[in-house]
Amino acid sequence: MNLDGLDAAILLPALAAGALVVATHVPLGLQVLKRGIIFIDLAIAQIAGLGVLLATVMGFEDSGWGLQLTAFAAALIGALLLYGCERRWPQVLEAVIGSVFVLAASAGILLLAHNPHGGEHLKDLLVGQILWVGFDQLPPVAGLYAAVLVAWFTLDVERRPIAFYVLFALSVTASVQLVGVYLVFASLILPALAARRRRTRSRALLAGYATGILGYVGGLLLAALGDLPAGAVVVWALLVSALLVAGSGAWRRRPAGASSSGSAQSPTDVVE
């Protein structure tokens, strides 16, 4: 135990970043799981990373607008490419996505063959460090995510796959730079897995959000107390909270005869 790590000035911006990522990635993740294209975030993140590398090679400043525009443009082009593949070759979409991931990663290495600066960039993008987030970085991301969420819940993304791909690319490009690919992947997939058996969309969302928030709060606290790297602990905390949420759902859904306390069955479950 180490109470020195419980420093609100360090943990609160990280928690706020986590809450932002959870807000968009839970609905996105439910859709990713439904479509069965789990590795799309790795592919999109890698393409966005390739855009960042391209911007560095072209001499744009770190954290400047040129760099962000290149990253978003690259991710959008990648997303539209994958949308095209979904329409043309739906049976092999996941294979195409995997190939796009390794191609983008290899293209990054080729781009950097003569550039000593970019290798660290690529690693930072993958591992990330949620504790480097400052409150000053959050307003632009919050603005983007608000727009993404409004678009997500007004457009019918199930019927308009192109909206899904575009919104996905925008969200992931921002979140990857904030918290790194590992946390982005975990925030997409683990809450969605926990919510898989929920019968209505709103209940799935609720279960997903509960998983995400519990994971980030618990993970950041545990990392601070245990003096461990925050991002990696949050990934594991998300797994534990996913198991808890999925388990509580399964317990509520158990057949009425399985236990004598049938009255514990929530009334809303009976309605369906």
Partner: peptide, 9 residues
């Protein structure tokens, strides 16, 4: 290895 919050504090 990303530094921990107690190190940063």
């Amino acid at each position: 290895v990303p530094p921990t919050s107690s190190h940063l504090s």
